[in-house]
Amino acid sequence: MLAHRRAAGYNSSVSSITPSIQVKVLFFGRLKEVAGGAEELVELTPGSRIEELFATFVARRPELARYRGSLVASRNQEFAAWSTPLQPGDEIAFLPPVSGG
């Protein structure tokens, strides 16, 4: 279920010596269908922000780009701004407009 992937910008010759952080990424609702999965582990360069994490998914699934303006992100179960820096072990989720109730 989980796939290890490198963020855009890495190549194999530097990944072994460049420090990286790993975060868990979750997609819900229609985003889960567009992203092609519900959960994934992603490696990024330290200091990366939520915006850059989302961009790595857009690079693989260009149709995600049109959802950028109509979704919110969360970091460790709290809504988070796109500029939020990522920490190792973070759980990041991309959430479409909520429709509970």
């Binding site: 919110v72 479409p96 407009p97 429709s99 509970g100």
Partner: peptide, 23 residues
Amino acid sequence: PIWKKEYFEDGAVWADGELPPVP
């Protein structure tokens, strides 16, 4: 963060929702 999918005779759609306020 809860979502509903509506099922009809001829297909299904994710319901329109509200975007939560984000700090």
